[in-house]
């Protein structure tokens, strides 16, 4: 792949923690390049470092060593404030447990990241409405998270992640807490975002059936990329 087409490029990426005086090597020597517009699944057993790698891509955690360029930014060198600003405009993140703000309605949760954008109130309203519409939850806009099902909450979380039109959408086991029907709906939605909008998606999952929706699957084991057959649709 031409590096000019890559949205994520990492070289010799490492992440270590010190726990009880002992160094835990969560990620080791990760060399990876993911192309813009791709739908990539990160797979591996529990503790293999999938979520940590996703967090590094999102700039919500810092690598111990190595280089990491996302959407043209060397995010390792960005200051804390610059990194936050970059996240606000370039990354959308979907959590396994949705993490909606409980005292805000679906509309207000989706509106949250737009407070950081230099847009008018009218533009904000249009974008929120469009995002809610695109995830099929517009009729629940005035509902609080406690009034929504798991699948509906995750749809709101996806709307919140895409409302800023980020270059990169990261999803950490987006169907991990959902029943089969809701999970299928969420995967259909992500596929639709990728297919119709060309959205770059990197998704962590345990489930091969879920990974099946992705164009490419990257395997991790004990913090290292392993040679496994890449699954192409």
């Amino acid at each position: 792949m031409n590096t000019a087409d890559a949205i994520i490029t990492c070289t010799a990426l490492e992440k270590h923690y010190t726990r009880g005086g002992e160094t835990v090597r969560v990620l080791e020597s990760i060399d990876l390049s993911l192309e813009r517009g791709a739908f990539v699944a990160l797979m591996g057993p529990s503790g293999s470092g999938k979520t940590t790698l996703l967090n590094l891509f999102a700039g919500i955690d810092r690598p111990t060593a190595g280089s990491l360029t996302v959407d043209g930014h060397d995010i390792v060198k960005l200051s804390r404030a610059a990194l936050a600003q970059w996240r606000a405009s370039s990354v959308g993140y979907v959590f396994q447990l949705y993490h909606l703000v409980p005292v805000l309605t679906a509309y207000e949760n989706v509106e949250l990241p737009l407070y950081l954008q230099p847009i008018s109130r009218r533009e904000r309203h249009l974008r929120v409405s469009e995002a809610l519409e695109s995830v099929g939850i517009a009729d629940r806009h005035a509902h609080y998270p406690r009034q929504l099902s798991g699948g509906q909450e995750q749809r709101v979380a996806i709307a919140r992640a895409i409302v800023t039109q980020p270059a990169l959408l990261l999803a950490d086991e987006p169907t991990g807490d959902l029943d089969r029907t809701s999970a299928a709906g969420i995967m259909e939605l992500l596929s639709h975002l990728h297919r119709d909008r060309g959205q770059t998606i990197v998704m962590v999952t345990h489930d091969p059936a879920t990974a099946h929706h992705a164009q490419r699957t990257v395997f991790l084991e004990k913090g290292r990329l392993v040679d496994a057959p890449e699954v192409h649709r």
């Binding site: 919500i60 600003q85 606000a88 405009s89 990354v91 950081l116």
Partner: peptide, 16 residues
Amino acid sequence: QREVSVLQTLGFGGAH
């Protein structure tokens, strides 16, 4: 704390 982390993930900085 989790809510704060969510806001940080969305791009809210320390000053915000």
